[in-house]
Amino acid sequence: MGPKAMSRADFYTAILLIALASAVIVGSFTMDRLEVRRIHPASAPGVVPGLLGIALLICGVMLFLRAVRAGGHRSLPAGANAVHWLSGLEARRLGLTAGVSVVYAALLVGWLPYQVATMIYVFVMVVGFERMMEADRPPWAQSVIVAAILAGAAGFGVGWVFEELFLVRLP
């Protein structure tokens, strides 16, 4: 990430951090002080989160001011640069990894039998990445065969190890 992109990222992050810190401070202030239990006021559950919220707020404001000084607020929106990056190979590789991995962990596991979900995930990832290669791309048939072998090994192998050896009831 270049300095310009970094200051822009810092600008947005600072706003998010200030919002989070404010929410934490409000949440801590309004948190039950357990007066009915007659606890010492200094041991109220909201004391430390409140102090951390204040510390985060200070850091967020410092980051915000620094990003503004570096011109992070002037280069909004990312516009053409973002469109150019999103159409690049890096974004496609990241999108495939993040997308398929999140779908596998958050959706497929628990919905399909573990072995089936794992086989689908490994197969899609291996084939997807090998087809995305610009150089040294293996032929289609080779990609599919290798992916199928790996998928089978991962699905049944990992499933067997955890189910039979570690006695885990798989999702």
Binding site: T97, S101, V109, Y114, V122, V126, F162, V168, P171
Partner: peptide, 18 residues
């Protein structure tokens, strides 16, 4: 890495669950 990382992620998912 294209063949290794999916297998590593499978362990990342099942490990915490186990």
């Amino acid at each position: 890495r294209e063949r290794l990382m999916p297998l590593v992620y499978v362990l990342c998912v099942i490990g915490p669950f186990a």
